[in-house]
């Protein structure tokens, strides 16, 4: 799977799960604020990432994820996607 496909997949399941328009999920947008997430929602975010990509996000990893761009990068790194 290529980077663009990964990003497309993330936008699709995040917009569906958190009920936002796909257009608001932009690399520069803040993840927590855009999706209106609280601490409980982060648990659900862990669940859907595991369902879609098969790995579990550790709580400490969220510390460095501010924007969707950070999140796309983080997922690609975890999956060893470079292009």
């Amino acid at each position: 799977m290529k980077r663009a496909e990964i990003i497309e997949k993330i936008i699709s399941f995040m917009s569906e799960e958190f009920e936002v328009e796909p257009e608001v999920i932009k690399p520069e947008a803040e993840l927590m604020k855009t999706l209106d997430l609280d601490s409980l929602d982060l648990v659900d975010l862990v669940v859907i990432i595991e369902k879609n990509f098969g790995f579990k996000v550790e709580a400490k990893d969220f510390v460095n994820i501010k924007t969707f761009g950070d999140f796309f990068e983080y997922v690609c790194q975890k999956l060893n996607i470079t292009e």
């Binding site: 409980l40 929602d41 648990v43 659900d44 862990v46 669940v47 595991e50 579990k56």
Partner: peptide, 11 residues
């Protein structure tokens, strides 16, 4: 199946 309680989700 998952052997990880966080994967039960928040609900």
């Amino acid at each position: 199946e998952k052997k990880d309680t966080m994967l039960l989700g928040s609900g």
